[in-house]
Design a protein around this nucleic acid. Structure first.
Lengths: 190, 190
DNA sequence: AACGTAGTACTACAGATGGAGTGGTGTCAA
DNA sequence: TTGACACCACTCCATCTGTAGTACTACGTT
C-alpha cells in the first residue's frame, strides 16, 4: 500500500468525478487511473479493494462540499436577519450546484451505501454531523425557528438541488429562486 | 422485436428490481433475464438496446409508485381537514417506503438521466405531471395553502424518503413521523 | 563523493468474468 | 401451413483485478 498523500488525494478526487459521470458500478480502479491520468494499476496500489475506495471517497466528499472554514466564520458574523439568511441559502444551493459532480457523486454514494455497510456508517456519521452543525449555527444566530424548522429547510433544499441537477427542466431558475425564498420565509416564521 | 405484453411487463418489473439492487450500470439484459427467470437472451428480444430498456422502465415506474385510481378517488372524498391531510402524507411516505425498490430504482433512473436525454425527457414529463396533479388535488380540497406550499411539502417529503431509504439511522421513526406532521402543519398554515 | 536502501512510479501480463448479439430449433395456435 | 414466439447455444469482445517485476529518485551513510 503506497503512502504518498498528494497522489492519494488526487486519486480520491478523480474517483469523485468518475462516480458522478459513470455511476457507482463504473467506479473501477482502472477508471480512476484514467481519470487521474496515472499509469494503470496505480489505484490498485492505493486502495485495498473497491470497498476501501468507496469508504475513502465517502470520507473525502464532505470536505469538498462544505464551505471552507473562512467562509463559515464570515457567515457566523453576518447571520442576523432573514434577508441575510436567505442569501446564505441561495449561496448554499448555488455552491452545491456549482460542484455538480460532487453532489451527484454523493447521491451515488448514498445509493451504493444500501449495499456497503461500512460506507453507510461513514456517510451516516458525516451527515448527522452536518445536520447538527446547521442546527447549532441556527440556534447561535438567534433567529426565530427551532430545530424542526432547520431540518425541514434542509430537507426541502436538498431535494430542490436533486431536482435541479437531475431534471433541470422541472423548475425554472426563477421558480428555484422563489422556492428558496419561500422555504426560508416559512422556516423562520414558524 | 417480440410483442407479448405480459412478458414485456414482467421484464420491465424485473428491471426495476435489478436497478434498485445493482444500480444503473448493473442493469444488463442478462441480469433482467435472470431476475425475471426467463431464458438468457430474452431481454435482447424485447428491447432494442439498453437505452430503450431504461426509457421503458422510466415510463413504467410511475404507474407502480402512484396509488391506484380507486385509492385516489377514496382520498378525494376524504380530504377535508388538516388531520386527514397529514394521514394522507403519512400514507404516502409509508407506501413509497414499502415499495422500497421502486423508489430506489427511480433515484437510479434520475442519476442515469443525466447521461440519457431520452430518459430525461420521459422522467421530466411524468414528474411534472405528478407535481401538477398534487397542486390540483390540493386546490380542489379547499384547504389553505397555495401551490408553493404544496411544492415545498413535496420537496421535503421526497428528501425525507431518500434519507429514510438510504441512511435509515439519520432519523428515528418517531422523528420521521414528527417531521411529516410538522411539514404538513407548516405547509397548511402559511 | 560513492554507495546502498527504501519507497514509489511505471509496465506488463495472467487469469477470469460477463455481456451483447445472433442464428437455429422446437412448439403452439390460427 | 405459416407465423410468432420461447428457448438454447455459441462466438466475439470488452474489461477488470491482482500481482510480479523493473526503473527511478531521494536520502542517509560512510
Amino acid at each position: 500500500m503506497r503512502r504518498n498523500p498528494e497522489r492519494r488525494q488526487a486519486l480520491v478526487d478523480a474517483a469523485i468525478e468518475v462516480l458522478a459521470r459513470e455511476g457507482a458500478r463504473g467506479l473501477t480502479f482502472r477508471a480512476v487511473d484514467v481519470e487521474a491520468a496515472v499509469p494503470p494499476g496505480t489505484a490498485s496500489n492505493y486502495f485495498a479493494n473497491r470497498d476501501d475506495l468507496f469508504t475513502q471517497v465517502g470520507g473525502r466528499i464532505y470536505e469538498r462540499l462544505l464551505p471552507d472554514e473562512a467562509a463559515i466564520a464570515r457567515n457566523q458574523e453576518g447571520v442576523q436577519d432573514q434577508t441575510r439568511y436567505a442569501e446564505l441559502m441561495h449561496e448554499l444551493v448555488d455552491r452545491v450546484s456549482a460542484f455538480n459532480s460532487g453532489y451527484l457523486a454523493l447521491l451515488e454514494l448514498r445509493l451504493e451505501s444500501t449495499r456497503r455497510p461500512e460506507l453507510r456508517a461513514v456517510l451516516t456519521k458525516r451527515i448527522r454531523e452536518d445536520i447538527d452543525a446547521n442546527i447549532g449555527y441556527h440556534a447561535a444566530s438567534g433567529l426565530p425557528g427551532d430545530s424542526t424548522s432547520v431540518v425541514l429547510l434542509y430537507l426541502a433544499l436538498n431535494w430542490l438541488i436533486v431536482e435541479r441537477l437531475t431534471l433541470p427542466d422541472i423548475f425554472t431558475e426563477p421558480e428555484v429562486h422563489e422556492l428558496v425564498e419561500a422555504a426560508v420565509r416559512r422556516s423562520l416564521n414558524a
